[in-house]
């Protein structure tokens, strides 16, 4: 079932990416402390890329083969990977948006209002969705051939 697959993806993501999550937190804090939005803009780029690590974890643990034991088909397994990246991208967007609002409160910048930053943020989130969407099918294809 999809819910089970997503639970697994989220648990694996949180447990395997702990260090990277701390690094991202550091970027946010640095961005706010140094009053530089560029640090914060790393978040929507890095977080979804980290979600792709789940594929390597599956390969190492042989989850791919083992998942034949469960009531899920390949389509659902592949969909769960895309859904994880989608949810992580949404989370990255929310985290980034909140961080920018906090930063703007720390350092009001009348020349660069939030309205002007919004397209950059949207572009970063779009890129975070587009990159995995292009690379994941290739990755699945390679794994399928190897399998």
């Amino acid at each position: 079932m999809m819910k089970g697959l997503l639970t697994k993806e989220f648990i694996v993501f949180l447990k395997t990416s702990r260090t990277q999550i701390y690094i991202i937190l550091m970027f946010i804090i640095l961005g706010i402390m140094m009053k530089n939005i560029m640090y914060i803009m790393f978040v929507p780029l890095l977080l979804p890329m980290m979600a792709k690590q789940g594929l390597a974890v599956d390969e190492i643990s042989k989850w791919d083969k083992y998942s034949a034991c469960f009531p899920v088909d390949r389509k659902k397994i592949v969909s769960s990977k895309y859904l994880l990246i989608f949810f992580i991208s949404i989370a990255a967007f929310i985290i980034t948006a909140i961080s920018i609002v906090i930063l703007k409160n720390f350092k009001p910048d009348p020349e660069n209002p939030i309205g002007r930053i919004a397209p950059y943020l949207a572009a970063a989130v779009a890129e975070s969705l587009i990159l995995p969407s292009l690379s994941l099918p290739l990755r699945f294809q390679i794994r399928h051939i190897k399998g």
Binding site: K8, D58, I60, S61, A68
Partner: peptide, 10 residues
């Protein structure tokens, strides 16, 4: 199966 394939950190 002959190998139980849960991810290591679980």
């Amino acid at each position: 199966l002959d190998e139980v394939g849960f991810p290591d950190k679980l």
